[in-house]
Design a protein around this nucleic acid. Structure first.
Lengths: 168, 168
DNA sequence: GAGAGATATCTCGATGTCAAGACAGTACAC
DNA sequence: GTGTACTGTCTTGACATCGAGATATCTCTC
């Protein structure tokens, strides 16, 4: 059991143990790391997308549409479920993406309450370029783990994530 | 190798494979899960803290001070490094925490540019109660992994986190 | 086919965050 | 000692997000 690669969370846990020896702070070993890592990832993604003139939130919406396959069209409702934001946020996002010429809005012919949002050609091109770039960078970040580590990590995370995804 | 507990990310990866079979999207298995899990955790924490009348950002600052040990005092600079926010954000946070009576500000006697922020008695009590509660809830979230899984998960995450923590 | 409840989207106000820059004070080299 | 670069904190303005509520439409039951 090597303890070489200490990180900030190790220090955090040690500090808590000194201050509150009565508490079991083991959960922080996992969950603080998840939060901190996500924060760092956000920053790295922001930097990566800047080269393609995209904000992370723009990328999130565009990829959801891109993943849907031709004709790259989804309802705002489907988009907000895919991106975990509220409806007000999604309206705002679509407005701005439409203004930037990356998506288009049209009334849903089957449901007059509804709207359908689709990628423009520019939108497809931009998201494809940014996505390829992102994957390159993410692969670099993960290189230290090796294929074995990546598999077990994703499997453990899936277990943790499942209860959130399924019930709702 | 059981594939039972499929989550949203499995679907996401499958969708990408169908749309872009030319790309290796394996990195998403890890990093999308980290991001999504962090998002869910934020929500869970928000709900947990609500019972103690604390916002997540308040908790972050208060715990940093609490961890420092008596006299529970740090500079704004130390706090922003601990919480990964910018200086403007930290100024704003300290203002509001001071107004709520949870922290106190005083000039640093050793550096006239500086300020020292410390917990009030109320602050200590509130953060201690909220922290114990948070740990209970986090333990529940992690229960599905077992002690073994938690150890390997935290170790893998540490490897991933180390490059972010050390260079800067 | 009328009404109740569910659903889809949008509007609006409040809020927390960031980025850039201002300003005071410190540290170090010469 | 003096000047230059650095550090620590705060200010300001822009912005994305959320939550609650408004409106229109659909669906299902009776």
């Amino acid at each position: 059991m090597t303890e070489d690669a200490r990180d900030e969370v190790d220090l955090l846990v040690a500090a808590w143990r000194a201050e509150r020896p009565d508490l079991d702070v083991e959960p922080l070993q996992v969950l603080s790391r998840v939060s901190r890592l996500a924060r760092h990832l956000d920053r790295a993604r922001r930097a990566a997308f800047a080269e393609h003139d995209l904000e992370p939130w723009e990328f999130d919406v565009l990829t959801a549409l891109r993943r849907a396959g031709r004709p790259y069209e989804l309802s705002p409702g489907a988009l907000l479920r895919a991106t975990l934001v509220t409806s007000g946020t999604m309206t705002n996002r679509i407005d701005r993406l439409a203004q930037a010429g990356l998506v288009r809005r049209r009334p849903d012919p089957e449901d007059r309450r509804g709207v359908l949002v689709s990628l423009t050609e520019t939108g497809v091109a931009r998201v494809d370029a940014a996505f390829a770039d992102l994957l390159r960078r993410e692969r670099d970040l993960l290189a230290g783990l090796g294929p074995e580590g990546q598999r077990s990590l994703s499997s453990l995370l899936r277990t943790l994530l499942a209860p959130f995804d399924s019930p709702l």
